[in-house]
């Protein structure tokens, strides 16, 4: 079990989208700078992959079902970050990440806030995650 998994409640029950989000943040945590005022979750394809697995399973798994909500992948990330605050889970496929970055930039300016965008998705056969930080008029990919 990796170090981040020891810090998350029932980490073995996380779906792949949540695992990659946590693993990526753990890897980048020292380069992220101060914790955010707002967090935006941007999940291309939402929870489709987990939805499909839940539907296919003969014995429906409750832990799989809870991850059929796209915002739930953020719960483990918040535990790792040891952070609380306003979270928005945004969907606008095929422009979900682009929309989230625009929203983050506008939020950073109008609320004078530091806004993180956390995104995880399945690309081909591999899971990927990316983090962005918006502050003032700038947005930086981490």
């Amino acid at each position: 079990m990796s170090e981040w998994q020891n810090r998350v409640e029932r980490s073995h029950q996380l779906d792949e989208a949540a695992q990659i989000l946590c693993a990526t943040w753990w890897e980048k945590r020292y380069s992220m700078g101060p914790l955010p005022d707002w967090l935006i979750l941007a999940s291309p394809s939402a929870s489709n992959w987990t939805d499909a697995h839940f539907v296919r399973s003969e014995m429906p798994s409750p832990s799989k079902f809870v991850h059929t909500l796209p915002n739930v992948r953020g719960a483990a990330l918040l535990q790792l970050m040891n952070w609380h605050g306003p979270v928005l889970c945004i969907q606008n496929d095929p422009h979900t990440v682009h929309t989230a970055l625009l929203e983050a930039t506008m939020l950073a300016v109008s609320e004078k806030a530091r806004v993180w965008v956390a995104s995880s998705w399945l690309e081909g056969a591999s899971w990927r995650a990316e983090f962005y930080v918006a502050e003032g008029m700038e947005i930086t990919k981490k």
Binding site: S45, N48, D51, A52, L69, Q91, T96
Partner: peptide
Amino acid sequence: TKGMSQDFIGNRGAERAHDPLT
């Protein structure tokens, strides 16, 4: 929470590229 997910994946479990809310 789930938009049109039932139409989206049906009972076949077919995976789609885009989210079921948009």
